[in-house]
Nucleic acid binder design. Structure first.
Lengths: 207, 207
DNA sequence: AAAGAGATGTGACAAATGTAATATTGATAT
DNA sequence: ATATCAATATTACATTTGTCACATCTCTTT
């Protein structure tokens, strides 16, 4: 299994190399220090797995990953992060990165690489919980508790689609004025102050 | 490393056992055929990893996983799925399951188990894309393509937090009028018609 | 029939919003 | 110094929005 390691810090790169080569079937075929090198190295060496730091000068790991995956969609890239770079994880996953690990866990890097090699996607401890839409757990809102009727809920959903009062009125066969009253009531009940906040609130909530 | 295998189908269980024991450091210490057995086996054997089918009679793998994790939050459970059981994945992750694999990929089971053993979370090929909130088709919007500047993006995010023009103005040290112009421009560029739609659009999009 | 309750509608008003045209400012280049 | 450009600001205006008080209208209950 051929691996390329890219990391700003040569000490880290070497440490990683040592760890990896403890696996007999593993060869580190190349090493680089920034995103641009990563792109070049990948293109020339086509390693089985690319192990790359996410924070690097010049081109960062994320951008490099994107570039590489654009060209080689099946590239197996494992990103290393120090900690709490949670913001990048979603992007990384979208690009098609195959792993997102904490540098700290030295002894999990080897198994992670093997898993990635077989096509799996691997997340370091704690990282899964950073995936929004997963942990970001939309409040399961108990609309009933606020005396929100079925009809009102419908209006809310229309607001959250961006309809104007006039359009909502037409949609549910009420006068525009009544729709205004409806919304005014809803805002009062929910302690919100305008339709934008209402829309946002609704979207962050599960019906 | 001690493993317990739970699967309806004894043929599958045995096949898995054979595969696993090709790893010399691995011992299959117990085998069961449904969720209830899984719970019992886990409690009595405390395996390092529990490998479990998700579809089983009596208690299914998901429920079993929940029960076990309720009692032992650090349990490392790897669920096996035939395919396209995507609906369960989010629940599984919420419970704290450490892996979700396709049964088909025989040769990825071993590395996956090792990764799980070190605390990583592993997803089989294709499975990542099933995570809603991720694939949940937030359009990866290329704001740059619409000439949205960094500052404009900031304004947009503030709109999506429900701030009024006046508040936004105070926040970023511009006059209210300028903020209005900003937003007017943004709406024009994005072909949207008011702040509510802008907020909705933004929330359904990844920065 | 009268009264009450609930949903719907109207009118009036202030505030916020969106648009457009036109300043003002400040920095840069010539 | 002048011309130029981008960013910011101002002004004016039409619309939309949110609030409130008060009508209607329709059922139901008594």
């Amino acid at each position: 299994m051929n691996i390329v390691i890219v990391d700003d810090d040569i000490l880290v790169s070497n440490a990683l190399k040592t760890i990896l080569e403890m696996g007999e079937d593993i060869t580190v075929t190349g090493m680089g220090q920034d995103g641009e090198e990563a792109v070049q190295l990948y293109a020339s060496l086509k390693p089985d797995v690319l192990l790359m730091d996410i924070r690097m000068k010049k081109m960062g790991g994320l951008t490099a990953a994107r570039e590489i995956l654009k060209e080689y969609p099946d590239a197996r890239i494992l990103l290393l992060t120090t900690f709490s770079d949670d913001e990048y994880i979603v992007k990384a996953l979208k690009y098609g990165v195959k792993g997102y690990l904490l540098k700290q866990d030295y002894n999990s890097i080897l198994p992670a690489i093997r898993a990635v090699y077989t096509g799996q996607t691997v997340f370091g401890t704690e990282i899964v919980s950073k995936i929004p839409g997963l942990l970001q757990e939309k409040k399961t809102f108990d609309w009933e508790a606020y005396d929100i009727s079925e009809k009102e809920l419908h209006v809310i959903s229309l607001v959250a689609e961006g309809l104007s009062n006039k359009e909502i009125a037409k949609e549910i066969f009420l006068s525009e004025g009544t729709v205004r009253n409806y919304i005014s009531n809803i805002l009062e009940k929910l302690q919100l102050r305008d339709r934008t906040r209402l829309a946002v609130y609704y979207l962050n909530t599960i019906k």
